[in-house]
Design a protein around this nucleic acid. Structure first.
Lengths: 199, 199
DNA sequence: CCAATTACGAAACTGGAGTTGCGTAATTGC
DNA sequence: GCAATTACGCAACTCCAGTTTCGTAATTGG
């Protein structure tokens, strides 16, 4: 069952990812040099490129490990559950943002990841799939709340989730503002309660 | 009042931006080569770098000209006005997205711009200022609707706008889904009407 | 043991961003 | 006219991502 030729040295992957992560956090995305990673890891550059076809692919692999597998909690209180979920997404974003290298308001590595997804078909597909999974879970949460009568029957769940998640990304990438629990609560309140005076 | 030394050739700016725009739309951000732009424009590379300190700066200058100055209309119907405004933002995003070079779902040049803002302090500051201006205008629109009683008195205008604008960016950059008038309407409806059943 | 296959290392190479140094051109202030 | 100042072109240069070539090592199947 083992593949035909010489097997890959599995220790390389772990070592490289650790070194690359250290470089990204220390000097930012631009400060990540393939040559330097290869040298510090004690492997040839070709060995790196066999595993990650571009610097973008390597960086994405590094950052992907930062994302905790956001477990979603369904307590029956949709407001609390959504705030919780938003906070988890925000934590992931803030972690990636810290990998920017630059201080001050800046998207950090988040922007580079979006650019990487735009540059490489496969990275784009991969991240879209991850987000689709997340979407599905969140939409199910919303749907359950709708079914049990907590939310409007004619709810547009997709729009609701886009609003919530989108606002987080918008803040991190465009306005550069920090996101914390207080903001997550404001966001969920605004989205749930709406803006019209028809109450 | 004229500056001291030899004046810059003002024709260069226009010519370079036109050529760079053509290259970006034809081959995408990665296909934009400084050497090629310089050659086609008939100027030296140093002349380019005197005006735009990096390729990112040049590209941002190119794309900045794509953005129409979104004039905001205040008809007194906040729902219609917001849909209108969202559609204008969406049009700008779709235009930039077209500058990606790649076909299929992809952020196109939008992702590169976000990355550029993250990479260069000055670009980040500049774009944040532009967005701040836009924010101010939109917040004023919302505020007027609130004052005349169309919107809730205890409205969180900032959160509302983040939700709307954020969802657009989220769709373009992350999910890669297209945005049209129908989506803008869904978005505004969802945000205005809220999701709770307490109506 | 042997052929096929895949991984690895080393080194040279290509291409593009950005820099540097230098000679020359255009302008202002005097 | 003359000095100071800024723009321009040209060419060589550095740096880094990514590629190519080639010799060698480890593994499977027979």
């Amino acid at each position: 069952m083992a593949p035909r030729g010489r097997p890959r040295d599995t220790q390389v992957d772990e070592r490289v990812l650790r070194i690359a992560a250290a470089l990204i956090f220390e000097r930012g995305y631009a400060g990540l040099s393939i040559d330097e990673v290869a040298e510090q890891a004690g492997v040839a550059k070709t060995t790196l490129y066999r595993r990650w076809s571009t610097k973008d692919h390597l960086a994405v692999a590094v950052v992907a490990r930062l994302q905790a597998d956001d477990e979603i909690t369904d307590t029956g209180d949709i407001r609390a559950d959504l705030v919780d979920y938003m906070e988890k997404i925000a934590a992931g974003l803030n972690r990636m943002r810290a990998a920017g290298g630059r201080e001050g308001p800046s998207a950090g590595a988040v922007g580079e990841l979006v650019a990487a997804a735009a540059r490489h078909e496969d990275i784009g597909r991969l991240t879209r799939e991850q987000y689709a999974t997340r979407n599905t879970i969140a939409l199910a949460l919303i749907e359950r709340a709708r079914v049990r009568g907590e939310l409007r029957a004619d709810l547009d769940a997709e729009a609701l989730f886009d609003q919530l998640a989108g606002a987080l990304y918008y803040r991190v990438m465009i306005t550069g503002a920090p996101i914390d629990r207080a903001y997550a609560e404001r966001l969920v309140s605004s989205a749930l309660e709406g803006s019209l005076t028809c109450h």
